[in-house]
Simulated scan of single mutants.
Amino acid sequence: MSEIRSIISATTKRSLVLIDEICRGTETAKGTCIAGSIIETLDKIGCLGVVSTHLHGIFTLPLNTKNTVYKAMGTVSVDGKTKPTLKLIDGICRESLAFETAKKEGISESIIQRAESLYLSAYAKEVVSAKNDSELVDVCSNMSTNGSDESHLQLRRIREGVAHNWTGSTNQTEFLQKEVESAVTVICQKKLIELYKKKNISELAEVHCVLIGARERPPPSTIGASSVYVMLRPDKKLYVGETDDLEGRVSAHRSKEGLQNVSFLYFIVPGKSLACQLETLLINQLPNQGFRLANVADGKHRNFGTSISIESVPVCS
């Protein structure tokens, strides 16, 4: 803090400020807020500089900045392993290479596996209430492939209940995001439960939707992984897709005119074939729940998501 005090007191518009791992020497929550306040101060001064951090909570703070831009370390997949490129790219990455670094430095596999388990249980779940979680499970269990009227009514009640809890929120994009997240979770988790029961899969996969904000990029863990994504377009239409290269697909979408700041929801699935199945399921079922799709025609040549057997699911190449 004494060093930060010296920096702040001496900094002018002509200064170059370099701060590595800002506020890491104290309790995380308060350190994050101190760091955010410092960044606001430097932004107001208007100096040139770089501030590095692993305090990812900074990106969710309501900072008042005008000149600050966000950069992340680029990564590549080499022989199935995620490695840094040592190049800065535009956007925010909320995930570090901590597990990969621990493996590289010889930490035992049992410790790393336990750490990964703790990470998933504590940080990778949807931010929904326990009440809504239990209701979503009930809908997933009772909903037929076509979707009964009662099941859709339940889903609507859940979505209305979630909306009711967002008191004071006027952000329509956030509202749409939450509605889409609820619908995607119900539709896809139900299908995964069916596959789990009919094919005797050893472990039931779970749908955990993750948001990629307007200035964010997908985390390194998505490299080489099969995922299903939903793009939230400015015209409130949705685009549903699947890919094994989420970062490349996000960049491709954002390169188009008018889509530079679009947000995405995605979830990881075990394998491209399943990703293709769930993509078509969503394309066919989301319009039935009142959502407008930009690529609804992509589902017309397939039957999946209406009334089929598991064996007749088309496989994408």
Rank of each mutant, 00 (worst) to 15 (best):
R302P: 00
L238R: 03
R94D: 04
S255E: 13
D43M: 02
H253Q: 07
C140W: 05
S255G: 07
D298M: 07
D20A: 12
G290Y: 09
K256N: 06
A122T: 03
I112C: 15
A252N: 03
S144N: 06
D298C: 09
A275Q: 06
S2Q: 15
L18Y: 12
G25T: 13
P270D: 10
T75P: 00
E95K: 04
D149N: 13
R292G: 15
D298V: 08
K300D: 13
I22Q: 03
D138I: 07
K13C: 03
D244G: 06
T65L: 06
P220S: 04
S77A: 10
T32G: 00
I268N: 11
G213V: 10
Y239K: 09
V137K: 13
I58V: 10
T185Q: 08
D20Q: 11
R254I: 05
K83M: 13
F264H: 01
K103T: 05
I283L: 15
K272T: 13
C276I: 13
F291L: 14
T85Y: 07
V207Q: 04
Q289V: 15
I39E: 02
N64C: 08
R254G: 02
V137Y: 14
R159G: 08
Q113M: 14
S108D: 12
Y196V: 11
S202W: 11
I158W: 01
C316S: 06
V210G: 00
K131A: 08
G248E: 02
I158R: 04
Q289W: 15
G271W: 15
G224H: 11
S263E: 11
K300L: 11
Q285V: 14
E279V: 14
G258M: 03
S309E: 04
F175P: 01
A122E: 04
E247K: 00
A225W: 15
I212M: 01
G91N: 01
I187N: 05
V127T: 06
N146A: 15
R156Y: 07
L192F: 15
N261C: 02
K104Y: 15
K272R: 13
I7A: 13
R114H: 14
P219T: 06
G80M: 11
K199R: 14
V76T: 08
G31F: 02
S255A: 09
Q177I: 11
E150D: 14
D244P: 00
G161T: 13
N132P: 04
I34L: 06
E109K: 10
C209R: 03
A214H: 02
W166R: 05
H152Q: 11
S134F: 04
T101V: 14
Q285M: 15
P234Y: 03
N171G: 09
G305I: 12
L48P: 02
E181P: 00
Y70Q: 00
I8D: 10
V127F: 05
R24A: 08
V127D: 11
E150V: 12
E109G: 03
C316V: 05
G36N: 03
L118G: 10
T243S: 02
I111G: 05
S273P: 02
S202L: 10
A205C: 14
R254K: 06
N132H: 11
K66G: 08
T82W: 08
K178Y: 14
L42F: 12
V250Q: 00
S15T: 15
F175T: 06
P234C: 05
V250R: 00
I112P: 09
